[in-house]
């Protein structure tokens, strides 16, 4: 018995150490980004680029990201609009589809379910999808970022599972009072589904905020570029000219500018994340029970 608990303690210590190391591997790059964006670049260079804590904090580099020529503020606004409206559309269409499909008695339910499920296994692919979007005249409109990706069948199945867990008795009594299914969905079912709506809303919102490829191929008009497309130009193609004001006396260094831009894009996520974390884990749990 004593040897067992001694071994137990060793195992516990090893597990704690490994998990701390894993967490550090995740945190260090983020810490580095914050530090470089806030530290005068001369200081960073003095330390040979090994910098995990900011010194002589300066917001100079953030100033460039928001200068009057910078594409970042506009891209921010556009992405914000797409995220808010797109998430609302996504949640509505997902709930509208999931609710009838959660009714075991609905004739044709299994067939319709298969129509959706099949799209998880097979799809038209990049080019045919592009051609459909183009023939609908959605190219260069923000709708192209909201409508084609409006529903994720996976999320719809999670919501359907949640809806089937709501006791029928609630809906039946409303039906006796003369309410129809649409009223019941809005008045009874959706208010009871706040956890799953919050979770899936977060998934959709993160998806829209991070959407890169759709924006790259469907939006060619520079004035409608989204955040991720602008970020790619700044971070991966090193196109920094727009971040430098016309009257700038000296060229700012590239690295801290890029890191400041990264932080500007990540900050909303960092702020919302701890607050919403419990919701999405809950949501995946719901989906996992009866996937």
């Amino acid at each position: 018995m004593r040897r067992e608990s001694w071994q137990d303690n060793i195992t516990q210590v090893v597990i704690y150490v490994i998990l701390v190391v894993i967490s550090l591997i995740v945190i260090v790059p983020i810490l580095y980004t914050i530090s470089v964006s806030l530290t005068p670049y001369a200081d960073t260079l003095k330390r040979g680029g090994v910098i995990l804590w900011p010194t002589n904090i300066t917001f100079e580099y953030y100033g460039y990201v928001f200068n009057e020529n910078s594409p970042v503020p506009r891209a921010y606004l556009i992405t914000g609009i797409v995220t808010v409206i797109g998430t609302a559309i996504s949640l509505l269409i997902t709930a509208f589809t999931a609710y009838p499909l959660s009714k075991r008695y609905l004739p044709g339910r299994n067939g319709i379910m298969w129509i959706f499920f099949f799209t998880m296994l097979f799809g038209g692919g990049l080019i045919p999808t592009y051609l459909v979007i183009r023939s609908l005249g959605l190219i260069n409109t923000l709708w192209a970022l909201m409508i084609p990706s409006a529903m994720s069948v996976y999320n719809m199945i999670i919501m359907r599972t949640f809806f089937s867990g709501i006791p029928d008795s609630l809906e039946e009594s409303a039906k006796l009072d003369g309410a129809n299914d649409i009223t019941i969905l809005f008045r009874i079912v959706l208010p009871l589904s706040m956890p799953v709506l919050a979770t899936l809303g977060l998934f959709y919102a993160v998806g829209k905020w991070n959407m890169f490829f759709d924006a790259l191929i469907y939006i060619n008009d520079r004035s409608k570029y989204t955040l991720q497309v602008v970020l790619r130009e700044i971070l991966l193609m090193s196109q920094l000219t727009e971040l430098i004001p016309e009257r700038a006396s000296a060229l700012p260094p590239q690295l801290p500018l890029q890191m400041a831009t990264t932080m500007v894009a990540v900050i909303p996520m960092l702020c919302l994340y701890p607050f919403l974390q419990r919701y999405f884990v809950q949501g995946v749990m719901i989906g996992a029970i009866k996937g």
Binding site: I93, F96, T97, Y99, P100, G123, G124, I127, V132
Partner: peptide, 25 residues
């Protein structure tokens, strides 16, 4: 079940236009 089918309509139109039309393509 007309109200339930009515609710399904947007999703069905969406899946046909944005998932099955590309498959036809």
């Amino acid at each position: 079940y007309r109200y339930l089918y009515l609710l399904l309509l947007p999703g069905l139109i969406w899946v046909i236009v944005f998932r099955y039309l590309p498959m036809y393509g």
